[in-house]
Simulated assay, not measured.
Amino acid sequence: MNLRQVEVFRMVMTNGTTARAADVLHVSQPAVSKMIQELERSLGFDLFQRIKGRLQPTQEGQLFFREVEQAFLGLTHLRGAAARIRDYGSGELRIACLSALSTNVLPRALHAFMQSNPNVGITFQARMSSNVRDLVASGQFDLGIVADEIDRTGVEVEEFAQFRVALAMPQGHPLEALDVIHPSDLDGQKFIALAPEDTTRREAEAVFERAGVTVRPVIETPYSTTICAMVAAGIGIGLVNPLTAEPYVDHGLVLRPFEPALHFRTLLITPPNRLPSRNLEEFIKQLRGAI
């Protein structure tokens, strides 16, 4: 079996007769018939039944045609990818990001990048940092933006940015009267906590322990956006990235500075042993600008 035989088979299936397939392929009808016969011999089953001089696809032929169509769709994608690579370098970017930056920094960076690179295809996913790390380490994604608690083996790591923690509370909460929140202000408060493995959560717990403060976790979540939504709904208070909280401020949520200073620290990660494309370098530049 060779690609030319498969192409001839596909033309017969899509055009209905060997004569029309021959016209499309600019070959003779006997040449088409011969290649179909050779393909059947190599496959070990009949692709067509010849009924009153007309070809009727067998059930096996129809099943084989489905697989052929999938293969040709793949070839079409390859041609498109090759054209994008020729014209724009690496013709697509695959980016994965922790949830906290997926609704603020990433959209701004993508908008700026796409203004000057409108033909570059973008794949974007918001995931937990550990999942982002796995996607990048396996080479499925070109860039990851993650929290600093990830396993750093198997990826190239670069410091990205840090964001000072703020305390989020529902509008009308008693703590809203304070200009700055200290650990002692949180004793006994209903608390929406980050996941146990989160570095910032562990640092906050150490601060609370030193201050002799006990908060009451009512919900745990790995997502800062979920904390903001829960706070805005009046469920409790939580430590958040102020950037993540932007859409919720004055919509059920109030922010106050927290002392002592805690930070969310983020990293950029890329697959190992892979030179960044021109497009990736430009996007990282836009990403840093969006901070």
Rank of each mutant, 00 (worst) to 15 (best):
D179E: 12
Y248K: 07
H173C: 03
V240T: 09
V155N: 01
A166I: 02
L239F: 13
T221A: 10
M169F: 03
V249Y: 01
V157E: 13
K190S: 14
G236D: 08
A195F: 10
P196F: 15
D198S: 06
G188L: 09
L167G: 00
E209C: 07
F208S: 04
V165S: 02
V215Q: 02
R202K: 12
G252K: 05
G238E: 08
M230G: 03
T214D: 10
E220W: 14
V157I: 15
M230Y: 12
C228Q: 05
V207E: 00
L167Y: 00
R216N: 12
F191N: 07
P183V: 10
F191R: 05
M230W: 13
I192N: 04
E197H: 13
A177L: 07
Q189W: 07
G234D: 04
T226N: 09
D198H: 08
H173T: 02
E203D: 07
A233R: 12
H173W: 05
G252I: 03
T244L: 11
D250W: 05
I237D: 04
E203F: 09
Q162W: 10
I181C: 01
V207P: 00
A229K: 14
G236H: 04
T226E: 12
K190E: 15
E209H: 12
G234R: 05
D198L: 04
A166V: 07
L178N: 01
P217I: 15
G238T: 10
D179R: 13
I227Y: 06
R201L: 15
F208E: 03
Y248L: 11
E158L: 11
Q171T: 05
V180Y: 01
E220M: 14
C228M: 07
E205M: 15
A211S: 08
G188D: 03
V240M: 11
A193P: 00
F208Q: 03
A204C: 11
H251S: 03
F163E: 12
A245L: 10
M230E: 14
C228F: 04
A245V: 08
T153P: 00
F191Y: 15
H173E: 02
E197I: 14
L194S: 08
T226V: 13
A195H: 12
R152K: 13
A177G: 00
E209D: 11
P222Q: 10
A211D: 02
V165D: 01
A232F: 01
A245E: 09
F163G: 01
N241L: 12
I192L: 15
E246T: 12
P196M: 15
I181A: 01
A211N: 02
P183H: 06
R216F: 11
D198N: 10
E209T: 12
T214H: 12
A204F: 15
I237S: 03
V207I: 09
V240Q: 06
A211K: 03
E203C: 04
E158W: 08
L253D: 07
T153N: 08
T226K: 13
S224E: 13
E246N: 08
T221G: 03
P242K: 04
A161D: 04
T200L: 10
L243P: 01
A177K: 04
A177Y: 00
P174A: 08
R152D: 11
E246H: 08
A229I: 09
L178M: 05
V213L: 12
I219N: 03
G236L: 11
A193C: 11
H251C: 00
P183T: 06
E158D: 09
